[in-house]
Design a binder for these strands. Sequence first.
RNA 1: GGAGGGAUGGCCGAGCGGCCGAAGGCGACGGUCUUGAAAACCGUUGAGGCGGUACCCCCGUCUCCGUGGGUUCAAAUCCCACUCCCUCCGCCA
Length: 435
Amino acid sequence: MIDPHVLRDDPDRLRDSARRRGEDESIVDTLIDLDVAKRTAQQAYDEIRARQKALSKKIGPLQGQARKDPDNLDTQRELAELMSAAGAMSDEVKAADARAAGLSAELNQAWLSVSNVVDPRSPVGGEDDFVVVSTHGQPRDFNAEGFIAKDHLELGQLLGAIDVERAAKVSGSRFYFLTGVGALLELALLNLAIAQATKHGFIPVVPPVIVNPQAMEGTGFLGQAADNVYQISEEDSYLVGTAEVPLAAMHSQEIIDAGHLPLRYVGWSTCFRREAGSHGKDTRGIIRVHQFDKVEMFVFTTLEQADAEHQRLLAWEQEFMDTLEIPYRVIDVATGDLGASAARKFDIEAWIPTQETYREVTSTSNTTQFQARRLGIRTKIDGATTPVATLNGTLCAMPRMIVALLENHQQPDGSVEVPKALRPYLGLDLLPVRP
RNA sequence: GGAGGGAUGGCCGAGCGGCCGAAGGCGACGGUCUUGAAAACCGUUGAGGCGGUACCCCCGUCUCCGUGGGUUCAAAUCCCACUCCCUCCGCCA
């Protein structure tokens, strides 16, 4: 949700944002019409309701009088007149109320379909129009080392770490078993990530992964992204695609003490994604799966601080990549690829040797006040209550991080060297090939 | 799954159908006192919409007492449904 005042004061900002996103800007005119109609109806209701209340207020005392002096016909008549006038007004009030409520619901519905106003710095365009911000680390030259890199699935099988065939038997395509060192690797990554986050003051959280429609709607995942959401129809609830959802909704309808901001959480949760519309993409291995675990940072802060916090989240993501000694680049995601709630988004893409390209492993978004408005999360600044800003950033999405780790640190025989920082958490310097 | 109890402002907690956006307390904020602080005393203190020509202030008005319906001239208060929480019993990670 966007500040409704923008609609009245500067509707061109909304049109401009929609255009940059490649979305239909005619929604702005619909909103303006609905906004005017709703306010008019609301004023009509307020006015008639005020008259009704004034009238009703007179009835009580008059009834008292009538009881004390039952023979006074003037009082009786006056009372009867008031009652019938108020009775007639009652229907009018109900009608006016229904009109205003209907328009208000319609307006809200329209607002929900509007994506966040993009940051003017976000590059305009589609998925491929990102801007490379920086590149870090040096991809290995496997030719120079004298061997051909194996892909993560082959490595995973050699190590006894990844089993997709049996997962297909049990669950279908895009599922996997992590076994042996694969399972240990996930746990080690989890602990390393949580250790880094808590070191920086994040509060660790294990959130629920089944949420109600308000949480899903509030975080902006029931719009264009709805296709990718698993719905539990019997329960009218959803499986989350990221811990961002429960972490954001955790403080919905609350006023957070300004002294507690920035409020930083690091959540660990399973994530569920239908991956509808991605048939044929990344079908090999565990790059694109229906279920995975992820360590996610989530921050509540002020709008003024949001941009600086976004940079910090990116820096923490980079710190994690650096720790794991994986080459990567940072991209500024283009407007058409932001999703409904983000104003600006940076992705970290890890170098994947066998694909000879960079692939997304983490992502951080500044959703400004978009989610906070929908979820009713506010704070008090100088006596005024105002929506907070929310931001999120991936610290470690397990399957993709494991892919990057295996491929980048592999040895000629298929064993994998463990980055130093991970060794204490794993208890191994090398993932050995299974005999 | 069965039985009972509850949901009110930042928190606790009262509330007869009209005088209730709501007593009282706590907390917070401002002030008096004090070298400073504490204590004591005085005062202020919910959110949101719309309008009064503009952000804040101020004024008016409407909405909000778990959610949604209903009864009534009038609902925090009466009725119905739902959700959540608590206690007890049963079942079970």
